[in-house]
Structures are given as structure tokens and as C-alpha cells.
Amino acid sequence: MSRIVDLTSPIDPRDLDFVPESMPDLALVIAPKIDYHTHDAWGLDFMVTSFGCDPDDLPRREGPAGEVLREISTHCGTHVDAPLHSGSLCEGRPARTMSDIGLEELYRPGMVLDVRPWARPGEAIPVEGLREAIKATGRDIEEGDAVLIRTGQERYSLGEPEYLNYPGMSGEGTRFLTGLGATVLGTDAVGWDRPIPAMRKAFQESGDAGHIWDGHYAIQDKEALIVQQLVNLGALPPAGFMVGFFPLKLTGTSAAPARAVAFLRD
């Protein structure tokens, strides 16, 4: 028997109230706007129009409920990034889209790297911290593993400053993990890389373009799938479980919202 742990962030349009006014584009990856169609209004009208019936012909004078999602990104909530998100080429070939990726690639042995001792707000997680976290799991990364980074962001909620000043991954750290064989890379942070203001500051101070979105650009060198906005990583063991990321079956996209689930053996 397996025990299921849900690793998926809830998508709640009420969270849009906490998106900073200075970052309006963030709303698209937090939640869609949702029109709620109720049984006794839209649903009732739909049934009366569709069937030519009287409202009293329907149980409790109700039709179906339904919702319409508006202004939603393929990167909304817990989601999987296809290689296409990181660039048009990956390993010298046209980068794959979500519809190029089979479910078997998204159901993998999982590892949780607890990097909280090395995680600093707005900074890159050092490779040495990744090495030590791997040792703590009791096994090496193997080809095809899903490696989930626990930064400690579960402490914060949208609306708190710390939520958007998260620790992130560098190009060096990303290449380190893919070089060991990881094919799925997950994080409990909003983004895989450091926050944009932190990367922008590093770039402007150094003039080094290597600070720009380097965690994602590293996927161009060695393919991997990136999963962001995970939750409940603290409920998982360091290793010895399977994890599945089940995205919407969208065609030709760079990402898709997904239900992320870990399967633990009793």
C-alpha cells in the first residue's frame, strides 16, 4: 500500500489580493480570475434555454454550476516547465514542449534535498550545500531521479515580503544536479532561479550576464524538467518514494499547471 502526499499549491483567486502592485505580472502565475456560475442563475438560465422547460421542472429550480477561468498562465500555481521555456534549443536540438513529454518522464523516484541550512533570502544555494544535502539522503542521485529542493519557503505566505525574496538556484547548481542524472528539478519556491531583483542587482553590479536567469538557461546545456511552487516537502522522507507530476495535456506549450503527488510506501 502507498500513502499519498499532495505537493500541489492550491490555486485560489483570493490570493490575487496579495500580489504587490509593483509586480502585476506575478498575478498570472499565482491564480486566474474565476467567474463562478451558480446553479440558480447561469445554470438555471442554461437549462431553461437548452430544454425549453419551466424552472419548476428542475430539482430545486437549479441547473448546473460552472466556472470560467480568465487571465491564467501556463506557469500558474504548481507547474512543470518544459525545456522550451528555457530557450528554443536544448542540447543543440529544438527544445521539447509539454506535449512532447510522456507521463513516464514525470513519474520518477524522488529525493528531497533539505538545503535550509545553506538557504539565504535572494541568494543562490551553493553547490557545497547541495552536496551535503545529497549525503544526508543516504544515497546518490541516479539517472532519471526527481530532485526536490526544500528551501524552507513553506514558512511564508503570499503577502509576506519573505515569500518573494526566496533562495534560488544558480546555473552552476542546476548543472551540478543534471550532471548527476536528475531529470526533474523541483522547488518549494515561486521560482527556480533567484528572484529577478536579486539577479538584476548582481548583473548591474558586476556586468556579468551570467547572473541573468542562469538556473533556467542551464537547461539548454542538459535537459531537465523544472517544477515550481511545490508544498509539503517537509512531509516527505529524504528518499525512497515515487513522485508524479501530472500536467494539463496542453499542446505545444512551454509549461502546464500540474497536480504533484508523492507516493510513500507504508
Rank of each mutant, 00 (worst) to 15 (best):
G179H: 15
F176W: 12
T187V: 15
Q204L: 15
S157A: 02
G173D: 00
R175Y: 09
R175I: 11
W192C: 04
R155M: 01
M199R: 13
Q153I: 14
A198H: 14
V190Q: 02
Y163M: 06
A198T: 06
I196H: 05
A189Y: 04
P195H: 15
I196E: 07
P161S: 00
W192Y: 15
G168N: 03
I141Y: 05
V147A: 08
R200D: 02
A189Q: 07
E154I: 08
G168C: 08
E142W: 06
V184W: 09
K201R: 11
P195L: 05
I141T: 02
K201Y: 10
E172R: 15
T151H: 12
V147G: 02
N165Q: 04
E143N: 09
I141H: 08
A202Y: 01
W192Q: 08
A198M: 13
I141D: 07
G179D: 10
A189M: 05
D140W: 08
D140P: 07
G191N: 13
S170Q: 02
S170V: 07
G144L: 03
G173E: 02
D188N: 11
A189L: 00
D193K: 06
V190T: 14
R150M: 11
W192E: 02
R155L: 05
D193V: 13
T183I: 01
A189T: 15
A146V: 11
G186P: 13
T187W: 12
A146Q: 10
G159E: 01
L148M: 15
V184P: 08
L185C: 11
L164W: 05
L180E: 01
G159C: 11
R155P: 00
V190A: 10
D193R: 09
L177W: 04
N165W: 14
T151S: 15
V190N: 01
D193Y: 05
G191C: 09
A182V: 00
E143C: 07
P161E: 05
R194S: 14
P167T: 04
M199K: 03
E205R: 12
G144R: 10
A189F: 07
L185I: 13
Q204E: 14
P195T: 14
G152V: 11
V190R: 07
P167S: 07
D140T: 06
F203I: 01
D140V: 04
Y166E: 05
I141F: 11
E154C: 04
